[in-house]
């Protein structure tokens, strides 16, 4: 369903960025490692998943251990957008605007099924939601679940780091290795 509408809504967010000032591979590589270790997420709680995003930052899961502790309320100070929740059509233009306001090296995580595809709120003749945030802004990492557990979000963070630096920095948890792949 969502795929059919894809052409209709695209292109949305303006993804054009300026060239980096020092555009040399080794410099960029070092910079990317620095970026990966201090990703600053934006508080972008839209619905239920926002609560899991909060527990991701709290004591038990403690995202600070991976350099992502500073939840910034302003898009200008953050470089990781965690879209956590359903995007209604009313909210869609604002999501696009927030994306465009975030300064250039930026990454987007679509957290939860609503952000990925509209999730449980997709049905015939629905009138109020956007079926997937990737229809309006480019998404780097998807985390399925309704809502995903904070571990899922941590894994998503690792995936962003992997995308940036090309390798996974942390060991796979025992359970994920043994569990069915």
């Amino acid at each position: 369903m969502a795929q059919e509408n894809q052409d209709l809504i695209r292109p949305f967010a303006d993804t054009a960025t300026d060239e980096p000032i020092i555009n040399q591979a080794p410099v960029q590589k070092i910079l990317n490692i620095c970026r990966a270790m201090s990703l600053w997420p934006m508080t972008f709680g839209l619905a239920c998943c926002a609560i899991e995003m909060m527990s991701f930052g709290m004591a038990r899961f403690d995202s600070a251990r991976f350099g992502a502790e500073v939840f910034r309320p302003s898009p200008r100070q953050s470089d990781l957008i965690i879209v956590a929740g359903t995007i209604s059509r009313k909210m869609a233009p604002l999501v696009v605007r927030l994306y465009e306001q975030t300064p250039a090296p930026k990454w987007v995580i679509a957290m939860g099924n609503c952000a990925i595809s509209g999730g449980p709120f997709v049905y015939k003749n629905q009138y109020g939601i956007v079926e997937g945030v990737d229809l309006i802004i480019p998404v780097d990492v998807y985390i399925p679940g309704c809502p995903p557990r904070p571990e899922g979000l941590l894994e998503g963070l690792f995936q962003v780091q992997k995308k940036l630096t090309g390798r996974r920095w942390w060991p796979l948890p025992e359970q994920a290795r043994t569990s069915d792949k």
């Binding site: 839209l46 209604s88 009313k90 604002l94 709120f121 049905y123 015939k124 009138y127 109020g128």
Partner: peptide, 15 residues
């Protein structure tokens, strides 16, 4: 408001 209006009432009639 209405930024997370998720059509619960309409859904009930469909499901």
């Amino acid at each position: 408001l209405g930024y997370i209006h998720r059509m619960h009432e309409k859904m009930a009639e469909v499901m």
